[in-house]
Computed example of a mutant assay.
Amino acid sequence: MLIARAMDPLVSDGGADDAVQEAFIELAKRGQPPDDPVAWMARIIRNRLLMWRRGRQRRRERENDYARMTWLVHRDDSVAIDIDPRQLTDALRTMPDDQRQVIVMRWWGDMTFRQIAGVLGQSRSRTHRQYQHGIAHLRTLLALETQREPSRCIR
């Protein structure tokens, strides 16, 4: 555990614990024990932590890119809104689960309302209503009417 925590001190939510557990699972799956079990475990732990760190970084970059898009702009507006990704993430966390899931699948998954409805087991019209309510909720939470700035319009 000390080695795992030293490799990635920024890992939160028990990431070091998870990496160690996964290394032990990999060790249990092996037929033969490695020549140097400690070094082998350290390598497995390090690889898991690096993989998770890269994944977090990619996710942050995607969220930042999408936050700059014009998802929350009314169709008749010709300006985009620069949204702080952390504010957007915090706002999404406060939303009802059904609305948040529809918005995340639509934005980050590029799914159609038909696809989302299939995943959630509901009608396409209900899915669209949840999306519209969620967008209105986000506009309110982020107080977008007061933050408008000219920018490039993506969608």
Rank of each mutant, 00 (worst) to 15 (best):
A117L: 05
H133Q: 14
D65Q: 10
I3M: 10
W52I: 04
D98V: 13
S151R: 12
R106D: 01
E145G: 10
R148P: 02
D35A: 13
T70K: 07
V102K: 12
D110K: 05
Q32P: 03
L2V: 02
L141G: 11
F113S: 06
R124I: 09
R100E: 05
D35E: 14
R139W: 03
P150L: 13
T70N: 15
P9E: 10
P37V: 12
M7H: 07
R58K: 14
A23I: 03
R60C: 06
D98F: 03
R93E: 13
G55C: 03
D76R: 14
L88H: 01
Q115N: 06
R5V: 02
A136Q: 12
A117Y: 01
Q21Y: 01
R75C: 09
D13L: 10
D98K: 15
G118T: 02
D90A: 15
K29F: 00
D35H: 05
T140A: 15
D76P: 08
L72E: 05
T94L: 14
L49I: 03
C153I: 13
S12G: 09
R100M: 12
Q132W: 03
V38L: 14
V119G: 08
Q132Y: 01
E26Q: 11
T140W: 04
I154H: 09
Q130F: 08
N64A: 15
W52M: 08
T127C: 15
R59S: 11
L10V: 06
Q147W: 01
M41P: 00
M105A: 14
M51W: 03
V38P: 00
R56M: 08
Q99A: 13
P150G: 09
L50F: 02
A6S: 08
R139V: 05
M7V: 15
E26W: 00
P33Q: 08
A16C: 06
R139M: 10
W108A: 13
D110Q: 07
M41E: 09
D90M: 12
M41V: 11
R124T: 14
H128N: 09
A23Q: 02
F24S: 08
F113R: 04
V20E: 04
T89A: 15
H137I: 01
P37L: 13
T70P: 02
D97T: 11
Q130Y: 05
D8T: 03
H133N: 13
R75E: 14
S123D: 15
T127I: 10
Q132C: 11
V38I: 14
Q130I: 02
Q147I: 10
S78D: 13
I81V: 14
L120T: 05
R114H: 08
R30Y: 00
L88A: 08
F24C: 05
E145W: 01
R48G: 06
K29G: 02
G109N: 06
G121T: 07
P34I: 04
Q21N: 02
C153D: 07
D90S: 15
A39R: 12
I154N: 05
S151D: 11
R152N: 07
W40A: 08
D36A: 14
G14H: 05
T146P: 01
M41L: 15
W107M: 14
Q32C: 06
A80K: 06
R46I: 02
E22A: 09
S78F: 07
T112K: 09
R53C: 05
W40L: 10
R155L: 12
Q115W: 00
D36N: 15
R53T: 05
D82W: 06
I154V: 09
F24W: 04
P150I: 10
Q99P: 00
V11H: 11
V79G: 08
I116V: 12
R129C: 07
